[in-house]
Design a protein around this nucleic acid. Structure first.
Length: 696
DNA sequence: ATTAGGG
DNA sequence: CCCTAAT
């Protein structure tokens, strides 16, 4: 029997900018059959051998989340460009997104259950001697793949999955299509098993005997972030339009009535909820090379959906910080406490379907990149007619040739902040998958929809033979039941989902959370994982952005920012880790003043003068939440400057000359008044001083 | 919190 | 727009 197994990882994510796909690495092939054939091992021996190897490998080797050490010799650059996000006026920093397209890594494994199965203590005597120890063989094969995963598998987007950010156009038509769905989670459409509106999926087949799905209580995880975002309406597909301000009809009061941008964007106002802000996605924008000192800012009104801050940016800032040490503790604290930032979250969960179907959508609204793998799936099997041993042959040599097209990763749910880097996403997925694999998987055999539980039966006995139609044969990946668990039979009830909960949680829960330091120290320590696979990132990004080399250097540190997968245990016991990096601040989105706004401003300044910006704000921009008095002051400054330069030098939306003239006159007038005032003051002061001197 | 000014 | 210093 030859079983080919592949692990396919499909991925798609929300607002992940396109990037050149990684080259498909050479398929890893480990032929167990060869071993078996050469050594004439019986399956048990084979299993023992493999198991021993796996045990030693897995136990002794530290779990390497950065298991990317493949030699990607042929890096294929993809001309994937991320177009400017329409809703942002700032140039989109491609690099800051650390965009990545992951390509599926395919692992194939061949397993042979040859005639040696005879020697197995299965008591089989008929033509199908191979007992259901095939489960073990498959499981071992998978486990071996887990080793592979630990050592050399890159998780990637499907090769055709070019994902764009924030509604930017993608090279992939499929994605362009999907972008209209509003979930923001685009993905390739070639995966028939994907559920619309969700994020990344890892081969979500529909068939799964919910025997032992991996389960992480997503609800625990949801506690970290959810409520917040629940209030954040989806607004990805809305473009904030700077609706022209109504002309002042009477006076200048409240010329700017509303913050139309906020509303039109569909984003709730930042003040609506605290958690809203707290979990607001960060904007990276074009700040990859921004100076550090601009990091903090007041809560930005309504950018929650459109922008992202990449860890990359953070890192850059961190480095820049050393260049410009200008932060006082007071400032830092103020920034920390007063400016609520996105709580960095990275949650990984697997859950029963109930949760998924219900919560995915809401999670999508939370603007998180989600990775979902559905239930452990039955893999599709193909009966191969090329079996060397046919029915007519001696029964002792009858064998079944199966081809498992792909094994689905057990149900897996990952939520990761959208400001996380793709690199960290990859790592997270990898860690999760690895954790699942390492946590113990077993293979279940499903035949005609029924789970074959009796491992002692022969394939022939259960109906798996070369003469049988194998269409209905499937395999599942299931968590290995733990000792504390009662026998599955006791827990089996009518609803298989109950089993999901019972059986799946524990295997994952016992997986120790990966302790990935996100502290300062680790920030500065590039990890091998990124150095091993940055070529595509660097090249691609660099080729089409003007990001500095510093950015590139910092990109390597991004993965370190990733929050480690959170086990159920950790979630239930440990408090939500405090966001250590409140610096995930984004620059406010640039919102050019419309002519109407300029007019309102001019009118207000004409009336109130240039030194009463708060009053100006209250009078003319009271309802424009995104315009602070500082903004107005700055705008006036620029207006004055604009009015003084030649029209050819002006940029942006042209301001009527009439307004500019008024600006100049008002500026002249009020500066004169100010000078007078100052003069009076100083003279009076001098007078007073003189008086006092005289008195002395 | 505002204002003023540099970046 | 951001950041800071000075009110």
């Amino acid at each position: 029997m030859v079983i080919q197994k592949r692990l396919d990882y499909g991925y798609s994510g929300y607002q992940v900018p396109p990037m050149p796909q990684f080259p498909k690495s050479a398929k890893k092939k480990r032929s167990v059959r060869k071993k078996a054939d050469e050594n004439q091992m019986c399956p048990i021996d084979l299993l023992a051998t493999i198991a021993g190897k796996l045990l030693s490998d897995n136990e002794n080797s530290t779990l390497s989340p950065y298991c990317i050490n493949e030699t990607s010799k042929d890096v294929v650059k993809q001309e994937a460009f991320c177009t400017k996000v329409p809703i942002k006026t700032e140039a989109f920093d491609q690099q800051s997104c650390n965009n990545t397209v992951l390509d599926p890594e395919v692992i194939e494994k061949q397993i042979s259950c040859g005639p040696d199965e005879h020697s197995q203590a299965s008591g089989a005597t008929n033509s199908g001697p191979a007992s259901l120890s095939v489960k073990s063989i498959i499981s071992d094969a998978i486990a071996e793949d887990s080793v592979i995963l630990n050592n050399g598998v890159k998780i990637g987007y499907p090769s055709d999955a070019t994902i764009s950010r924030c509604g930017s156009t993608s090279k992939s038509p499929a994605f362009a299509k999907a972008e209209g769905e509003g979930d923001g989670l685009t993905r390739p459409l070639d995966s028939e098993n994907q559920i619309p509106g969700n994020g990344l999926e890892i081969n979500a087949p529909e068939m799964y005997s919910l025997e032992d799905p991996m389960y992480l209580d997503a609800k625990h995880l949801a506690l970290v972030s959810s409520d917040s975002s629940a209030e954040v309406p989806a607004c990805r597909n809305h473009f904030p339009c700077n609706s022209p301000l109504p002309k002042p009809e009477s006076g200048i009061e409240n010329v700017v009535h509303r913050d139309d941008d906020d509303n039109s964007s569909g984003c709730s106002h930042p003040s609506s909820t605290i958690t809203n802000k707290a979990c607001r996605p960060q904007c990276i924008g074009d700040h990859g090379v921004r100076k550090l000192s601009m990091k903090y800012r007041k809560a930005a009104p309504n950018m929650m959906k459109y922008d992202r801050v990449s860890n990359y940016d953070i890192e850059t800032k961190a480095v820049l910080r050393s260049k410009k040490i200008c932060y006082t503790r007071q400032r830092t604290q103020r920034s920390y406490f007063k400016r609520r930032r996105l709580i960095e979250r990275c949650m990984i969960s697997a859950s029963n379907r109930g949760f998924f179907s219900e919560d995915i959508s809401s999670l999508c609204e939370k603007n998180s990149i989600k990775i979902e793998a559905h239930d452990p799936h039955r893999t599709s099997l193909e009966a191969k007619g090329a079996s060397p041993t046919r029915i007519g042959q001696s029964s002792s040599y009858n064998s079944v040739k199966l081809s498992i097209k792909s094994f689905k990763v057990p149900e897996l749910f990952i939520e990761i902040p959208e400001n996380a880097t793709v690199g960290s996403l990859k790592r997270t997925v990898m860690e999760t998958v690895t954790a699942i694999l390492k946590g113990g998987l077993r293979v279940g055999v499903v035949l005609q929809g029924k789970k074959v539980r009796d491992d002692s039966k022969t394939l022939c006995q259960v109906g798996i033979s070369s003469s049988e139609k194998l269409d209905s044969l499937g395999f599942t990946l299931e968590p290995v039941p733990t000792q504390t668990q009662p026998p599955p039979s006791l827990k089996r009830s009518g609803d298989p989902r109950l089993l999901c909960l019972d059986e799946a949680v524990q295997p994952l829960a016992r997986i120790p959370p990966l302790d990935l330091s996100i502290g300062e120290a680790s920030e500065v320590t590039p990890q091998p994982v990124l150095t091993s696979c940055p070529e595509s990132d660097h090249d691609s990004v660099h080729s089409r952005t003007d990001a500095s080399s510093l950015d590139k250097a910092n990109a390597n540190k991004l993965a370190l920012v990733t929050v480690p997968p959170i086990s159920v245990e950790a979630l239930t016991v440990a408090p939500v880790p405090k966001p250590r990096r409140p610096e995930h601040v984004q620059r406010r989105i640039r919102r050019p003043f419309s002519v109407a706004e300029v007019e309102a401003l001019v009118q207000a300044v004409e009336k109130l003068g240039t030194g009463r910006w708060r009053d100006v704000k209250l009078q003319a921009f009271d309802s424009a939440k995104h315009r602070t008095y500082v903004d107005l002051k700055d705008k006036w400054k620029t207006l004055v400057h604009t009015a003084r330069i030649s029209p050819q030098q002006r940029r942006g939306e042209p301001v009527p000359q009439e307004l500019l003239d008024r600006v100049l006159s008002a500026q002249a007038y009020w500066s004169q008044q100010q000078a007078k005032l100052h003069h009076i003051k100083s003279s009076s002061a001098a007078e007073a001083e003189t008086t006092s001197c005289l008195l002395l």
